[in-house]
Simulated scan of single mutants.
Amino acid sequence: MLTSTNQPWFISAMPKKTYINTTIDPELLTALKVLAAQQGKRLNQVLEEGIKLVLEKYEKATK
């Protein structure tokens, strides 16, 4: 579902930034940090990108 700005609903509905606390497999975290460094991005940017991709995947699956 796209909004009037032609963005998926979960992007336009997001507040600017919210703090979350979670746990993650140490090897996965290391791989994400390496990927972020290789891409010249912050870890948070890579995580947000991944979360958006997962949301898009499951939104498409429900159509």
Rank of each mutant, 00 (worst) to 15 (best):
K63E: 04
E59M: 08
F10V: 01
N44C: 00
A61Y: 01
K57D: 04
L43I: 14
K60T: 09
T30L: 08
A61S: 13
K63Y: 03
V34I: 12
A36M: 04
N44S: 15
L43F: 15
Q45S: 14
S4R: 14
T30F: 11
E48K: 13
E56N: 14
L35I: 06
T62Q: 14
Y19E: 09
K57A: 08
Q38A: 10
L53F: 07
D25S: 09
L35Y: 13
E49Y: 14
V34T: 01
V34Y: 11
L29E: 06
L29G: 00
I24H: 03
S4T: 09
E48S: 13
K16A: 13
L32A: 11
A31W: 07
I24R: 05
M1K: 03
L43H: 11
L53I: 09
E56S: 15
D25Y: 06
T62S: 12
Y58G: 00
L29C: 04
A31G: 00
A61H: 10
T30C: 08
K57E: 04
T23K: 06
A37F: 10
F10T: 01
V46S: 00
W9H: 15
T18R: 13
L55V: 03
T22A: 12
Q7K: 13
G50W: 02
P15V: 03
K16Y: 04
L43M: 13
M14W: 11
L2G: 05
V54W: 10
G40M: 00
L47N: 02
P26F: 01
N6P: 04
L32D: 00
Q39A: 11
T62L: 13
R42F: 10
E56C: 09
K60A: 13
K63P: 00
G40T: 01
S12L: 07
K33R: 13
M14T: 10
V54R: 10
L28R: 06
Q7L: 14
T5L: 09
T23E: 10
E48T: 13
L32M: 11
V46K: 03
I51Y: 11
L29R: 06
K52S: 12
L55G: 07
K63D: 06
L32H: 05
M1P: 06
F10M: 03
L47Q: 01
L32Y: 06
K52G: 01
W9K: 12
L28N: 06
T22K: 02
L2V: 03
L53S: 13
S12Q: 09
N6E: 12
T5V: 02
T22P: 00
E48P: 02
N6K: 07
A37P: 00
A36T: 07
T5W: 04
P8Q: 04
K41M: 07
L2Y: 07
L32T: 02
G50C: 03
L32V: 02
E59T: 14
P15F: 08
Y19T: 07
E59K: 07
K41S: 01
I20Q: 04
M14V: 05
I11T: 03
M14P: 00
G50S: 02
M14E: 14
T30I: 05
A13L: 03
E59L: 12
L29N: 02
T5M: 09
T23P: 06
